[in-house]
């Protein structure tokens, strides 16, 4: 039983780390990538009155941060439910 509990906890943590890595990669790309490192390349594209790189740096990155957090909330709530549906601490 203890073995099973440990295995389940490890599974939960592994899955969590996977979500983290993926979402942090998106976080980095939308802010440091689009807004800073590749800003000049993106600035050659125009979206309405905005140069795209400038838009990411002053608007888009912030919207993406909000979306990332809510995706994480959704994924983790699902993962929590799955884990609590098979509670590791019951026999």
């Amino acid at each position: 039983m203890i073995m099973k509990k440990k295995k389940q906890a490890a599974g939960y943590w592994q899955k969590n780390l996977q979500y983290l890595t993926g979402l942090l990669a998106v976080w980095f790309t939308c802010s440091f990538g689009f807004g800073i490192l590749w800003v000049e390349k993106l600035n050659t594209i125009k979206m309405g009155g905005f140069k795209l790189g400038f838009w990411f740096a002053q608007q888009g990155a912030i919207y993406s941060f909000v979306i990332i957090i809510f995706i994480y909330v959704f994924l983790m709530n699902k993962l929590d439910k799955k884990f609590i549906a098979n509670p590791p601490n019951k026999k």
Partner: peptide, 26 residues
């Protein structure tokens, strides 16, 4: 500040919001 810095003002905009992703995730 942004008004006088133009694009460079993005350091504050991204810098003072992006930390919430780290807070929520880590």
């Amino acid at each position: 500040l942004i008004s006088f810095m133009g694009y460079d003002g993005a350091v504050y905009l991204m810098g003072w919001t992006g930390g919430y992703v780290l807070l929520a995730l880590m």
